[in-house]
């Protein structure tokens, strides 16, 4: 058995070409295998190139401002003083809002899809939820800008400002004029966008729970929810944390939807309603005004590099968690 398997590409070992004596076939095979390796390595090189080009592009900004670039809150094209703090804060904060909102929804929808919905409805509803991920991000941007922002300005932000604004400490998050946009609106829209990714991975994980485990829990009298909470979710915990990280990673780099609603103000503000900026929105918004070879353009590339590093760490962690759960 081992001997036959060893020669197969599916097992990762080069085939021995037993019986393939024709030299034409050999040469064609060499070319083909070369192409396969070439394309596999191309994918590797691509990521390396992206990192290298962003770093190289941002280098003048890093050398002009040093590490201070990371925690300087000024972004002033006039005096050519640039720092990334406001955008890093906006990127992480808005993505965390998105995850906080999307997480309970995903838990609920995954519970619905795996335990509650009648069998015939699971697929269509699952697909419909997945279609939310297919809607292009610019559509979310328009929907957010023309539909959600006015609703936020009229019905959500004013009462929050009235009720929560006066509370010390937390109140700072809920101050300022109700303009409709800002960090909260951006976070809410991104929550809708990452919801299908998290839900799909939750469902996949929950469906991999051995039926025996669940049945024994039902056998000792657990309710559907108790089995979900105490058996299914703990079983897939690692992969589910990975799924949340993937959602976070997606939200960190989201551009168009955020650019439409966040207000694109490069000032630091604690308020959830004040105009802010993320790294991606700043790049999209300020790039057209950045002249070739200017320090501003270098700073935007440096911002891109920082975003890449943050996303890379989050996505790598997500993948590690998801894969380690699948293996065990």
């Amino acid at each position: 058995m081992d001997a036959t398997m060893a020669g197969l590409p599916g097992s990762g070992v080069q085939p021995g070409h037993i019986g393939d004596a024709k030299p034409v076939g050999r040469i064609a095979d060499l070319v083909f295998v070369g192409l396969l390796w070439g394309c596999g390595i191309f994918v590797l090189v691509l990521l390396g190139l992206i990192i290298a080009m962003l770093f190289e592009g941002g280098l003048p900004a890093f050398s002009a401002f040093g590490l201070d670039f990371l925690w300087t809150a000024t972004w002033n094209p006039v005096t050519e003083k640039f720092g990334a703090l406001v955008m890093i804060y906006g990127t992480i904060f808005s993505a965390i809002i998105a995850v906080i909102v999307a997480l309970p929804l995903s838990f609920g929808i995954a519970f619905f899809l795996t335990e509650i919905a009648p069998q015939v409805m699971r697929r269509p509803i699952g697909v419909a939820v997945q279609l939310l991920a297919a809607v292009p991000s610019i559509i979310y941007g328009m929907w957010g800008f023309f539909i959600i922002s006015p609703l936020m300005a009229a019905y959500v932000q004013p009462p929050l400002i009235d009720w929560l604004g006066p509370i010390p400490v937390i109140g700072a998050l809920f101050t300022g004029p109700a303009l409709g946009g800002g960090m909260l609106t951006a976070g809410l829209i991104m929550a809708v966008m990452i919801l299908p990714f998290i839900t799909a991975m939750f469902v996949e994980t929950l469906e991999s729970v051995p039926p025996m485990l669940k049945e024994s829990a039902y056998g000792v009298g657990g309710t559907t929810f108790e089995v979900y909470k105490n058996v299914s979710v703990p079983y897939g915990k690692t992969a589910m944390v990975g799924a949340v990280m993937l959602g976070l990673g997606r939200a960190l780099g989201e551009t168009m939807a955020v650019t439409f609603v966040i207000g694109n103000a490069t000032r630091l503000s604690a308020s959830l309603f004040a105009p802010g900026a993320t790294i991606a929105s700043t790049i999209a918004n300020e790039f057209p005004e950045a002249a070739q070879g200017s320090l501003k353009l270098d700073s935007l590339l440096a911002l891109g590099f920082i975003l890449f590093v943050i996303s890379f760490i989050v996505l790598a962690l997500s993948r590690f968690l998801v894969r380690s759960n699948l293996k065990s």
């Binding site: 390595i41 994918v43 990521l47 780099g253 991606a280 890449f308 996505l315």
Partner: peptide
């Protein structure tokens, strides 16, 4: 390569533009 591909799959698309 599999790891790198998974990263590319979810990497911010704006950075691809910038690259």
């Amino acid at each position: 390569a599999r790891f790198v591909n998974d990263i590319l799959l979810s990497a911010p698309s704006i950075l691809v533009g910038l690259f």
